[in-house]
Nucleic acid binder design. Structure first.
Lengths: 189, 189
DNA sequence: CGCCCCATGTAATAAGTTACATGATTTT
DNA sequence: AAAATCATGTAACTTATTACATGGGGCG
């Protein structure tokens, strides 16, 4: 008796990496694993992370499943993958699927939560530190935005995600300011 | 030759569940694994997730490491854990630690990113669906906020996290509206 | 007595991270 | 020739998810 897994049965959630890769291949055109790792790092990074050690094996699986194909081979074993029609279909399917309330995971927000466990005076320091981190992120995203909108016309890749990232980072900073003010009031009382 | 892991060497990132549990025990007082699973579900859920199958083993480890102790035992094998001074110290340490830019992971935002891969007309539907999901979350958070602020004085648990959740959810809705408008403009052109 | 909730766990699998390992090409 | 970067992979481990499994206690 063998339990059918993944392709066969269960796994309704998850598989995000798979679709992230299909999405990148769809939007950025044919790319190598190396390219995709880079793309991940400086586009999708603030939303989902993956290193090359996760990307290469996943590309193999995608290839085995016929969702991508090797379009060409370059210099040092460089393989350029392209999304296939089946791949495109699966991606669309996944995006259109409903009832999916996938994983949410933010260590920054978790810390925000846990400061309730600290005395106000100490909590302030923690919030300030996290705030500084997000400040840096905002600068990074703004630079990227500048760079992108400076480019061609209006249709750059990841435009909506970048916009979302900017909004959320700014919101986080606002929250941090409000929280610090509140903590100060409590500490001072 | 044995490779020292975790307690001994590496693992600088990660361990978030561990600290989430310590934080809950610190803020909510002595609780059983079951209680903690419940607490997770309706307090910290929008920030970090964990099911009981992850919680129980982690509690065992925390106990083995002396960061929590069994304060009492109840009816059906119910064990009530309390955070120890060492546990409190570790939690503070972790919160104060710097240079930590932990994992960020949001499937909603990932989908937002990937819509670039869809023709505008289809993308609108996707964004609308995700938007609806966040609308439900907002209602949920608002209800919780209502409930909490209705309670005692001002010092409820997870107050800051809830505030952050509300702000971020509202921001997401704003983004969705702007994006839908933009997509409509593009689809109509 | 039967049902629902309390309460705890384990097993199997999937997903993610860090470190290890190797070698080719381009740039300085 | 050395250094940086391109390029791909594997191994070992941790973390997370889903399903399986069991039994006590309260209530109608």
């Amino acid at each position: 008796m063998s339990i059918l897994t993944c392709q066969g049965v269960y796994m309704i959630g998850g598989m995000s990496l798979r679709y992230a890769l299909l999405g990148l291949l769809s939007a950025a055109g044919p790319s190598s694993g190396y390219d995709l790792a880079k793309l991940f790092e400086n586009s999708i990074n603030h939303v989902w992370r993956a290193g090359h050690s996760q990307i290469y094996p996943e590309l193999s699986k995608l290839h085995a499943d016929g969702l991508i194909e090797v379009e060409a081979e370059g210099p040092r074993g460089r393989k350029i993958y392209a999304i296939t029609p089946q791949g495109r279909a699966e991606l669309h399917q996944w995006l259109l699927e409903k009832g999916r309330e996938g994983p949410v995971r933010s260590e920054g927000a978790l810390q925000a939560f846990l400061i309730s466990a600290l005395p106000p005076a100490e909590a302030i320091g923690v919030v300030e530190r996290v705030r500084a981190m997000f400040e840096r992120r905002l600068a990074d995203l703004e630079a990227r935005h500048e760079q992108m909108s400076g480019g061609s016309g209006g249709d750059y890749f990841g435009r909506y995600a970048l916009d979302l990232g900017l909004r959320q980072t700014r919101t986080f900073l606002e929250w941090a300011d409000a929280t610090i003010a509140d903590l100060r009031a409590r500490a001072g009382s």
